[in-house]
Simulated assay, not measured.
Amino acid sequence: MATNQTWDQIILFFSQDEHTALEPFFKLFDEFIQTEHPKELQANTTNNLIVVLETQE
């Protein structure tokens, strides 16, 4: 199925607002890490998320 929507727009569409969209985002992100790049990204996942969270504050 083709769509013109980006992944972030789809997550936001199914959420009440940006704040509630964070939970499904991280759930899907963890699923992606486990299935697509288990060895390369798992070791750095925590560090990458800390950097993202710190830049948003």
Rank of each mutant, 00 (worst) to 15 (best):
V52Q: 13
E18C: 04
F29K: 02
T3A: 10
I11C: 02
D30Q: 14
K27E: 08
P38Q: 14
L41A: 10
T46M: 14
E18S: 03
V51L: 09
L49R: 10
Q16C: 01
Q5Y: 07
L41S: 12
E23V: 12
H37L: 14
Q16R: 09
T45I: 12
Q42I: 04
M1E: 04
N47W: 10
H19T: 04
N48P: 01
E31Q: 10
E54W: 01
F25V: 00
M1R: 05
E18N: 04
F25S: 04
K27P: 00
N44D: 14
Q42V: 06
T20Q: 13
Q34E: 13
F26Y: 13
F32C: 02
I50Y: 06
T45E: 14
T6G: 14
N4E: 12
I11N: 00
W7C: 02
A43R: 13
Q16A: 06
A43G: 09
Q16Y: 01
D8E: 14
E57G: 11
E40V: 09
I50N: 06
N47D: 15
Q9V: 08
D17M: 04
W7M: 08
K39P: 01
S15I: 10
P24K: 12
A2F: 08
H19D: 04
K39Y: 11
W7I: 08
T45Q: 07
S15R: 01
Q42Y: 06
